[in-house]
């Protein structure tokens, strides 16, 4: 008597969302099964892997990341180097330097960087803000304008600034709008609804539902994603059917396990290996929980995670 499993295929599916243009464009979502449940139904669009660079200067990066970009003097150099790395399917530019409590670079200066990067690489682009909601409203709106025609993802509109970011990215320039909430299904849903009420097409929204590093409150990330996928697929909740994109790198490269030097923690061994494994294990957990795309920073993590995805789909 062979093993018989009931199919877990749903009648509803996750929205299909394309980022970028031309040959290199990527498509997220479209599946009508839980993450990697290919035994229930084929998954057409495997989750995608992106690499993150920032304008914030190399000094703030861990040593091992600096090493990967040796010889690069500008953000554009870094973008070209990153785009050529194995397994990279999209490029994420974090405009860290915009932070008013940090370098406080002007919007003009940053938008110029966005334009230069866009001219230098043909990969799909994700532009992340500096995490200050007022500055991001301006920054991301201007970036949306500068990237007209590139079908880029602006990450992200939050509850505090969704009107500005949503209007520019979603309405005026028809880019893909990122919707960022704080690890809670109701907040994620609410922001999608607000964006839709503003007139942004639900089909051009990607959610960043918030994330954490492995070991740092990650259980909330798991349950939030589990519940979002359940609502989207089994209850056909159209306000939660947006693909999920998770910026893993900006979380993991801050925690002690990834950054403490070997001199500080001799028994822990080389910092680079710890950082890579923290990034890999967090990303793998995000993917099996429901992320349709992950943003990573170390080239070795990108290689392993894209291999993992290939083997699972």
């Amino acid at each position: 008597m062979p093993f018989t499993a009931k199919s877990g295929k749903f009648n509803a599916s996750i929205n299909t969302l394309t980022i970028g243009t031309g040959d290199k464009a990527i498509t997220l979502g479209g599946e009508n099964v839980l993450p990697f449940y290919t035994f229930d139904a084929p998954i057409e669009n495997a989750p995608k892997v992106g690499i993150e660079i920032t304008d914030g200067g190399m000094e703030n990066e861990p040593e091992c990341i600096q090493k990967c970009y040796e010889g690069c003097t500008t953000v554009v150099d870094m973008a070209k180097a990153a785009a050529a790395m194995e397994g990279v399917e999209f490029l994420s530019l974090r405009l860290e330097g915009g932070d008013p409590n940090g370098l406080n670079k002007s919007t003009e200066e940053l938008v110029q960087i966005v334009k230069d990067v866009a001219a230098a690489v043909d990969l799909p682009l994700v532009v992340c803000g500096c995490k200050n909601v007022e500055k991001d409203a301006e920054l991301l709106s201007k970036a949306a304008e500068a990237l007209d025609g590139r079908n880029a993802l602006l990450l992200a509109a939050k509850e505090e600034n969704y009107k500005t970011v949503g209007a520019a990215a979603g309405l005026a320039y028809k880019q893909v709008v990122g919707a960022e909430s704080s690890v809670d299904i109701n907040l994620a849903k609410q922001l999608n609804v607000l964006l839709s009420q503003l007139g942004v097409n639900g089909q051009s929204i990607a959610m960043n539902i918030g994330t954490a590093s492995a070991g740092y409150g990650f259980e909330y990330v798991i349950s939030t994603m589990d519940r979002i996928k359940a609502a989207a697929l089994s209850q056909n909740d159209a306000t939660l059917q947006m693909p999920i994109i998770t910026p893993v790198a900006s979380e993991v490269w801050g925690v002690k396990e990834a950054v403490a030097s070997e001199a500080d923690m001799p028994e822990w061994g080389p910092a680079e290996e710890r950082g890579i494994d923290m990034e890999i294990e967090t990303a793998a957990a995000d993917l099996v929980s429901g992320s349709n795309a992950v943003i990573l920073r170390h080239p070795a993590s990108v290689v392993t995670i894209s291999k993992l995805i290939k083997e699972l789909v």
Binding site: S213, G215, Y216, E257, W268, G269, R274, D277
Partner: peptide, 16 residues
């Protein structure tokens, strides 16, 4: 199972 693998893995398990 060195510290590199273990630190995130055991933390993840503890969360889960």
């Amino acid at each position: 199972m060195g510290y590199a693998e273990a630190l995130p893995l055991y933390g993840m398990r503890q969360n889960l």
